[in-house]
Amino acid sequence: MAAITAKDVQTLREKTGVGMMECKKALVASDGDMDKAVEYLREKGLAASIKKGDRIAAEGAAYAAVIDGVGVVVEVNAETDFVGKNEKFVGFVHGVAAVVAKENPADLDALLAAPYGNGRTVQEEQQEMVLVIGENIKVRRFARFDKNVSVAYVHAGGKIGVLVNLETDLPAEKVEAIGKDVAMQIAALNPRFWDKSQVDQATLDEEKKIMLVQMENDPKMAAKPEKVREGIVVGKMRKFYEENCLLQQDFVKDGSMNVEAYIAAAAKEAGGSVKFVDAVRFEKGEGIEKKQENFAEEIAKLQK
């Protein structure tokens, strides 16, 4: 019998989306032959959706929650927006979040290998969802905060999931509204940085370079003394921070203050201190190239 390697098992897993143990059994039963192993899994009904694994899954849901004091945000993808609202799919998404909270997986592979809670792993439950729902479904990413106080926010039924982490001396229920306001700001404006201190030198240099070139190309600006132009750049950089850094952005609910000032004022009113620590924003399908359908072209082909 041919030796079965971990790489062989991984390759079969990637081809079929079936769990590691089932892939190993299939390879053993097929004497290491990859094609026969795929056929074996299909016959068992485990890889009936093998072709679905190649289809683009860019819909689905982003979901955030606080579970037993642990903040979790996950993204699980499906092929259509319709499935993203399916009760079974939503239940799976919530189940994945619960696993992240309980098991604290180190990475996506560890999450997929973790127990789902019903005798199957997350990977096997994902495959079950593919078979039941009939679309390619993939757990894509997750994040987890187990320190401080976390506040979760889900926008537009799962289009965006935001998890905000706050350091505070107040009970969680007293900072819920503050965290929700900050999360909504993040969902709406998607800032590039949380604070101006996080803006790296390369970004600053690039922004300054663009501003100087713009002034050189403007005859009125180009005629101004260099010191004046440098002062204008400083003012423009302040505007850059206000547009791109969360804590320096105008607070959307009250434009008279920025987000940092809002947090401080709201904390004082609640009788304690609150400090923004970190946040995660997942938007479903972000960065995934979606297939563009030309329905007029498809109809024309059918009529030929």
Rank of each mutant, 00 (worst) to 15 (best):
T11G: 11
A97E: 02
S197G: 08
G158Q: 12
G53M: 13
M257H: 06
E124Q: 13
L41P: 06
A265C: 09
K224W: 10
I210S: 11
A78N: 09
A98W: 00
K236Q: 15
E59V: 00
V28P: 00
V93F: 10
T203S: 08
S197P: 06
N104D: 08
N86E: 08
E226W: 00
L41A: 02
N86S: 06
N118R: 03
Q198M: 12
R120M: 15
A97S: 04
A97D: 04
F282Y: 15
F276G: 13
M129F: 02
E173T: 08
R281C: 07
A2D: 13
E79P: 04
K174C: 12
T203A: 09
A202T: 10
S256K: 07
D109R: 01
D81Y: 11
A98Y: 01
E293V: 15
F276Y: 13
V139H: 05
M1Y: 14
K88Q: 13
E286P: 06
K224P: 10
I178P: 11
L166D: 03
K36Q: 12
K227Y: 07
V100D: 05
N165R: 02
D181C: 12
G32E: 06
L170T: 08
R141D: 01
A101S: 05
E173Y: 02
A48L: 13
V154F: 00
Q249C: 14
V139Q: 06
V73I: 10
V175P: 09
T203F: 04
L170E: 09
Q185E: 12
P191D: 11
I67M: 09
N165P: 05
F276T: 11
F193E: 09
G117Y: 04
C245A: 09
L204S: 05
E79L: 04
Q248F: 05
I137F: 02
R120K: 15
K236N: 14
I232Q: 08
E297I: 01
R13D: 02
V99G: 02
T203C: 04
A156N: 13
T16Y: 00
N148P: 06
V233R: 03
A202V: 11
K88V: 11
E289Q: 13
A202Y: 07
E14W: 01
V151R: 08
K239S: 15
Q214M: 10
I137G: 02
L166W: 00
E103P: 00
V72S: 05
D81F: 11
R55I: 01
E14S: 07
A264Y: 06
D181A: 15
